[in-house]
């Protein structure tokens, strides 16, 4: 049992790294997606809607497989870790698009009207009036997205990235101790999720005060 700890800890670092990179990419995709969905241009709105619908309508695992195994056929060569980050990030971005869009459209129409009657431009209204208010509403649901994303990093085990789930699976196979290995990996996941959750709660409090 003792011998496996270092491997699990190392794997946990890979999971954390994956989660952080995925979250960053997800937020970028989410912001772009939301901007597209709220755009003045019908074509961008369509692109945004298609992105959300297709990504949320198909399994993340399949998306990873297309990218990692199918990528070389169309000239995209990625190692498993890179494919994992990009695949999961684009996937998380679709969910975050809806979160960010939801927070923006839930701001009362009167706010926009009041700002525009003062003479602010559309962009100024968005930047000075709408976004600061909707940012407060976003933190908690984005936290839910990130929680899901941490658990989704397990999928890259299927393309052989040596993260926590892959490690647990490997040692379940070699030690025949499924419960112990599950608990070991499970506890590490829950620590990561717990710490992230506390971070989100802290951020949420902070944005509520200002």
């Amino acid at each position: 049992m003792l011998k496996v700890y270092p491997f699990f800890l190392e794997a946990a670092w890979i999971t954390i790294l994956l989660a952080v990179l995925t979250a960053v990419l997800g937020l970028i995709c989410g912001a772009l997606g939301a901007a597209a969905r709220l755009s003045r241009f019908a074509f961008l709105r369509f692109l945004g809607a298609a992105y959300v619908s297709v990504i949320r309508g198909t399994p993340a695992l399949i998306q990873l497989f297309i990218l990692y195994f199918g990528g070389p056929q169309i000239g995209i060569q990625l190692d498993a870790f890179e494919a994992g980050v990009i695949g999961l990030g684009v996937n998380a971005g679709a969910y975050m698009t809806e979160t960010i869009r939801g927070a923006i459209i839930s701001i009362d129409k009167g706010q926009r009207e009041a700002s525009r009657t003062l003479g602010l431009s559309q962009w100024q209204t968005m930047y000075k009036v709408i976004l600061p208010q909707s940012a407060r509403l976003m933190v908690r649901p984005l936290g839910v997205n990130i929680n899901a994303l941490i658990k989704a990093t397990a999928l890259v085990a299927a393309i052989s990235v040596v993260e926590l789930t892959y490690t647990a699976q490997r040692y379940i196979g070699s030690t025949y101790k499924p419960f112990e290995m599950f608990l070991l990996a499970g506890v590490l996941y829950m620590i990561i999720i717990y710490v992230t959750g506390r971070g989100v709660a802290w951020l949420d409090r902070k944005v509520q005060i200002t």
């Binding site: 999928l155 926590l164 789930t165 379940i172 599950f182 990996a185 499970g186 996941y189």
Partner: peptide, 17 residues
């Protein structure tokens, strides 16, 4: 608090165990 994939491994291999 844990990934579904991990749970599937537990159930599949755990039940055999």
């Amino acid at each position: 608090g844990t990934p579904l994939l991990l749970q599937l491994f537990l159930i599949y291999f755990g039940l055999v165990q």
